[in-house]
């Protein structure tokens, strides 16, 4: 019996070490990832956090200046993270991730003279991975917002979008009625639609009336089955989803937000950002982004 307790204790200790190990692992990449430090999520008192942030900020400067683009060129590939459940910006066709973002990323890779590697992952995971430097860039129809700017850097904006409401056809719901108790809003976890529904419509960070799905398509299925009353998602995915289910769903005309998409890179990686912006400018002037949008809207 004593042995069992000993074993349990050992297991706990190991777990504790595993916890520390995780922390140390993250810190080994401290120089590159120290900038998000300054995000200091609305909690740390200014006087206590100011001194400790100085040193990492300096080391960030000298390490990320050390040729982020050179590193990509040396590796011969640029790694992009996305969540391919967001048509027309990213979706899967056959075995490949395609879409507007994939096309833009391919142009960036072409301009750098490297191969494009696309990692298809959860949206929130892609945002975390780009902060940690596991990805070179996240291109996932990411809305630029102040909170996110604290943890990552954004390129020039390449698409203007807004959040739209999908409801079941003829349910008679309006944008205002989404506030009502009992009206459950489906969103994709961690997207700006999620934040709008939670903070602006329901006005309660712990609301039980926002259902957070892995993607908007699963949310739309639940909407068609009457499990939820509305889905809030970005304009173009909303239009794609409604177009595919015109007999059951309808789009409300209200634009809930004005927002811009941009490409995210690790905080402080100005060099890569410059390269990305150069490509975006070229695509913009050649009218390519418009072309990509038209090409993928039919999908």
């Amino acid at each position: 019996m004593k042995k069992k307790w000993l074993a349990a204790l050992l297991a706990l200790t190991m777990a504790a070490f595993a916890g520390c190990g995780g922390g140390a692992g993250n810190s080994s990449s401290a120089p590159e990832s120290s900038a998000p430090e300054s995000s200091a999520p609305e909690s740390s008192a200014p006087e206590s956090s100011a001194p400790e942030e100085d040193a990492p900020a300096e080391s960030a400067a000298d390490s990320s200046a050390g040729g982020a683009v050179e590193k990509i060129k040396a590796a011969g590939k640029i790694v992009m993270g996305t969540n391919a459940e967001f048509p027309p910006f990213e979706y899967v066709e056959g075995n490949d991730v395609v879409g507007v973002d994939a096309d833009i990323a391919a142009e960036i890779a072409k301009d750098l003279g490297v191969e494009l590697v696309i990692e298809n992952m959860e949206f929130t995971a892609a945002l975390l991975a780009v902060q940690n430097g596991q990805l070179d860039m996240a291109v996932a129809g990411i809305t630029v917002d102040e909170e996110r700017k604290k943890s990552m850097d954004f390129s020039n904006e390449y698409v203007t979008s807004s959040q739209y409401i999908i409801i079941a056809k003829d349910s008679g719901l309006t944008a205002d009625s989404l506030k009502d108790a009992g009206v459950i809003i489906g969103v994709q976890n961690g997207t700006s639609g999620d934040f709008y529904a939670t903070d602006d419509i329901k006005g309660d960070p712990n609301t039980e009336e926002v259902a957070r799905y892995k993607n908007a398509i699963l949310a739309a299925q639940d909407l068609m089955n009457g499990k939820i009353q509305a889905v809030i998602i970005d304009e173009l995915p909303a239009k794609s989803i409604v177009a595919a289910n015109e007999d059951k769903l309808e789009l409300l005309p209200d634009k809930l937000t004005e927002e811009q998409y941009a490409i995210a890179v690790q905080k402080g990686n100005q060099e890569l950002l410059d390269a990305i912006n150069a490509t975006l400018d070229r695509l913009e002037s050649e009218g390519k982004i418009e072309e990509f949008l038209i090409k993928h809207m039919g999908a």
Partner: peptide, 11 residues
């Protein structure tokens, strides 16, 4: 992610 290691060194 915060640079835990850098902070540990500081105290």
């Amino acid at each position: 992610m915060r640079p835990l290691l850098a902070i540990i060194i500081k105290g």
